[in-house]
């Protein structure tokens, strides 16, 4: 442990981390610890402070307050060392549009001071990894959205980083391209690379992340393993009652149902009843009010529901 209470073997750790832009606080005293080799997610809607947190981690913007360590390095004072072992996939692709795929990668390798031969070798390896070897001579603006994204991921690997920061790696990609990216990230994880990723797709978070934090308005609302988080925060299942604006869950639902309900949440006129046992709950409800249940939707609960109950609104809103 360091004096700041940060475990020395942590890949990335923050204590009371704050980012301010003028009078706006984008990141508001967050704490998290990412272990080496894990995939750690930041789930939240736009404006939650995810990107600001990422930018501080890869040294693009300064820390306003608090402590941040990346592989034990302080981004304020050890930026060069930090940049050597961190790879970055920023939210915007920011490829060099004047250059080809190969030139983009090769120059990046040279930025990292790889000697020319080692740089070429690394470029070949990376191009194969992201399946762009046949596009080597193409200009960047000739690539599809998914290819550009893969190229940026390839570029982030050029310095063989131990920590990879991915800011919304699949936003705007079609399902096929998204799956390709997911496969590549999974492959990196098996190689022991620590992954930090932000997303507002709960499916992505649930699928890739060992642990995640749910963020909203600069704060961390909850933290844990995706499945546990759902289980702890809302229960594994949910019954959605549409057009239930008049129903007061505390008064209008039968006692047997109320005992099964762990949490309720209202969105517009819909009522969400969170539980660990959908079948029994539906049965209890049906006995008291068959009409209400006829429109009900029973499904497993998701991270979206966790976010909904914690932040009071949906991820995509």
């Amino acid at each position: 442990m360091t004096p700041e209470g940060i475990p020395s073997e942590a890949a990335v750790a923050a204590r009371g981390l704050v980012k301010r832009y003028g009078s706006h606080t984008a990141v508001d005293h967050v704490d998290f610890t990412v272990d080496q080799g894990e995939c750690f997610g930041f789930l939240g809607p736009n404006g939650a402070g995810k990107t600001s947190t990422m930018k501080m981690i890869y040294g693009r913007s300064s820390v306003s307050e608090g402590v941040l360590r990346v592989l034990g390095l302080n981004p304020d004072t050890q930026l060069s060392e930090l940049k050597r072992c961190v790879g970055v996939v920023p939210q915007e692709n920011n490829l060099d549009p004047d250059l080809t795929v190969w030139e983009n990668l090769y120059l990046y390798a040279r930025y990292f001071e790889l000697p020319p031969e080692a740089a070429e070798e690394r470029c070949h390896f990376v191009l194969d990894f992201v399946s762009l070897a046949d596009k080597s001579g193409a200009r960047v603006d000739e690539l599809s959205g998914g290819m550009k994204r893969r190229l940026v991921i390839g570029r982030s690997l050029i310095n063989s980083p131990r920590v990879l920061v991915l800011d919304e790696p699949t936003t705007g990609l079609d399902p096929h391209a998204r799956h390709l990216v997911w496969q590549q990230l999974a492959a990196l994880r098996t190689q022991g690379v620590t992954l930090l990723l932000t997303t507002h797709y709960m499916e992505e978070a649930a699928r890739l992340c060992d642990r995640l934090v749910v963020m909203d308005q600069g704060r961390i609302l909850a933290e844990g393993r995706p499945d546990r988080l759902v289980e702890e925060q809302v229960g594994t299942q949910v019954v959605e009652l549409p057009e239930a604006g008049q129903v007061n869950p505390g008064l209008d639902l039968p006692q047997g149902a109320q005992e099964l309900i762990r949490r309720t949440h209202r969105v517009g006129s819909s009522l969400f009843l969170f539980t660990d046992d959908n079948r029994t709950l539906l049965g209890e409800l049906a006995r008291a009010n068959p009409e209400l249940v006829s429109r009900a939707l029973a499904r497993p609960s998701t991270l979206e529901d966790v976010f909904l109950t914690l932040a009071g609104r949906g991820l995509e809103e």
């Binding site: 920023p90 920011n94 490829l95 549009p97």
Partner: peptide, 14 residues
Amino acid sequence: DRGVYESMVTGPLR
């Protein structure tokens, strides 16, 4: 505008 310098600072350049 087109993010060329940005790509440099995203990498190791100051």
